[in-house]
């Protein structure tokens, strides 16, 4: 089963739409509560990342009986040093974003912690692709 969402950069009010929808679906599929929680946290963080940094993005989700695969692609500044971005506390978020309670630099490490497989590809100045897999 597939789900698709689009994200508008800068629109913080919309962050969380995809994760809420996915949560409802996974509950209906009877996925374990703790597993759902991890997926939802990772997806929400990813959504916020796109909203906070990119111009726009797409989420494509594929749910099978034993796993959920999420592919998030955005058009934005890209990540120059992915290893650095994976460090807790590292953030390039603007002051404005931080004032809104986001951008504490926990995003990518938090995603890593809550996914079974994580792959990040980025072209600086163009786009970032985050691919996550969680097994039920």
């Amino acid at each position: 089963m597939e789900l698709d969402f689009s994200i508008e950069g800068g629109d913080f009010t919309q962050a969380g739409q995809a994760s809420s929808r996915v949560k409802k679906v996974l509950k209906q599929l009877g996925v374990d509560a703790k597993c759902i929680k991890s997926i939802v946290i990772a997806l929400y963080e990813a959504e916020v990342n796109v909203v906070a940094h990119a111009y726009k993005g797409q989420i494509h989700i594929q749910i099978d009986k034993d796993k959920i695969q999420t592919l998030i692609t955005d058009e934005g500044p890209g990540i120059p040093d992915i290893a650095m971005a994976m460090t807790e506390g590292f953030s390039t978020a603007s002051k404005k974003v931080r004032e809104m309670g986001f951008g504490a630099g926990m995003g990518l490490p938090n995603i890593k912690k809550n996914t079974d497989e994580l792959k990040i590809d980025s072209v600086v100045g163009q786009s970032t692709t985050v691919s996550m897999v969680n097994y039920f």
């Binding site: 089963m1 409802k24 679906v25 509950k27 209906q28 599929l29 009877g30 509560a33 749910i63 099978d64 009986k65 034993d66 039920f136």
Partner: peptide, 23 residues
């Protein structure tokens, strides 16, 4: 104890089928 009431089917595969049907 949890008592989830929104599961479409106890069988995951069947639940997925129902979910696709719903869509």
């Amino acid at each position: 104890k949890a008592n989830p009431a929104f599961i479409l089917d106890e069988n995951r595969e069947k639940a997925l089928e129902k979910m696709s049907k719903m869509q």
